[in-house]
């Protein structure tokens, strides 16, 4: 039964919205004295001249419950709903479902007005045509609509202009937030600049490089550790000579600025001979000692030569002799020596 009613209601809605002829057949009746009106509402109470507003009417389920309805019909609207209020749209019907059940029918009309004042909208009839031909009339109460005009400056008889943008006072919180952002950005910029600058100079980002040991001290320390490792006894002569020659290469770089890591043994000796003129500590004897060490080193590294234990020790002694013989002693070292 229920399904039948709903079905019929839909048919009625469809017929209503598409057929003008049906509307002609339904008589227009004025509300009686004891009529019970349903509530209707406007989107808002008042509008400005020319504003548009929706007038909404809800038909609850209770209005047609237990009745077999064939059609639902609103009165066909005149252009003026009432004097001064105009309808911009026909009655738009919509159905409201809840849990797949038709709960209500909504109707709405778009209104506007071009005259200021207070308007009482008329009661709006809704016709429910039953299956047995009886037509029930339901009334929606007409609400009151206030239409306001634009305020006019009485001194100039011109409308007031738009209100200027309101300037709010800046709060402490906003100032602190801005200051925080500025500090963070400035900090980041400073950090990036510092990283780039320090990287270029090959320095750590923060702090200072502790002055390292003088080249000869650093070299002698490494040579001493090489001696302690005694790699040649572990059948690692090649590794031993690689460490030995690399230590001397680093020393040559730190002591004379020779790019020894990228030079061959012969080139290093050649570079040292060039430095000899400006360095009294660099003698032919020193260079000769180093040359012998390099020669043994090259044989061990590149010629599968296995030097004897005495040769290995001798090479280390030669390296130490060269470093000690060419060491530039600083003032502190001299003092210590004097104290001793």
């Amino acid at each position: 039964m229920y399904r039948f009613i709903i079905k019929k209601l839909f048919v009625a809605l469809f017929v209503f919205t598409t057929s003008e002829a049906l509307a002609q057949q339904i008589p227009v009746i004025s509300p009686g004295r004891d009529f019970q009106a349903l509530e209707s509402a406007l989107d808002r109470d008042s509008i400005l001249i020319g504003d548009q507003i929706w007038w909404k009417m809800d038909l609850p389920r209770e209005a047609w419950q237990d009745k077999q309805i064939e059609a639902v019909q609103f009165r066909s609207l005149p252009f003026d709903i009432t004097k001064g209020v105009e309808a911009l749209s026909p009655v738009i019907l919509d159905s409201v479902y809840r849990k797949k059940r038709l709960e209500a029918i909504e109707a709405r009309i778009l209104l506007t007005s071009f005259d200021s004042g207070s308007y009482q909208l008329p009661h709006m009839p809704l016709y429910l045509k039953r299956m047995d031909g009886i037509v029930d009339t339901l009334w929606f109460k007409g609400p009151r609509l206030y239409v306001n005009t634009i305020q006019v400056d009485t001194t100039t008889f011109e409308p007031f202009g738009l209100k200027p943008q309101m300037r709010y006072p800046v709060t402490t919180g906003e100032i602190l937030l801005l200051a925080g952002v500025i500090i963070i950005v400035a900090g980041l910029i400073f950090l990036i600049v510092r990283i780039v600058q320090r990287r270029r100079k090959n320095l750590p980002v923060f702090g200072q490089i502790k002055p390292g040991d003088p080249p000869h001290v650093a070299a002698l320390k490494i040579l001493e550790s090489i001696r302690k490792q005694e790699l040649w006894k572990k059948q690692k002569a090649k590794q031993y000579y690689t460490l030995l020659t690399d230590t001397i290469r680093v020393y040559l770089h730190d002591r004379w600025g020779i790019q020894a890591m990228e030079q061959t043994s012969a080139e290093m000796i050649c570079s040292l001979r060039k430095e000899k003129a400006g360095d009294s500590l660099l003698t032919d004897e020193n260079i000769g000692v180093l040359e012998k060490m390099f020669l043994t080193g090259d044989l061990a590294k590149f010629a599968k030569y296995t030097p004897s234990d005495s040769e290995n020790k001798e090479s280390l002694e030669r390296a130490i002799l060269f470093v000690s013989g060419t060491a530039v002693l600083q003032e502190d070292d001299n003092k210590e020596e004097k104290e001793e």
């Binding site: 061959t264 043994s265 012969a266 080139e267 090259d298 044989l299 590149f302 010629a303 599968k304």
Partner: peptide, 11 residues
Amino acid sequence: RRGYVIPEDVR
């Protein structure tokens, strides 16, 4: 007159 290659040879 060497039986092995050293970096000088490569250069």
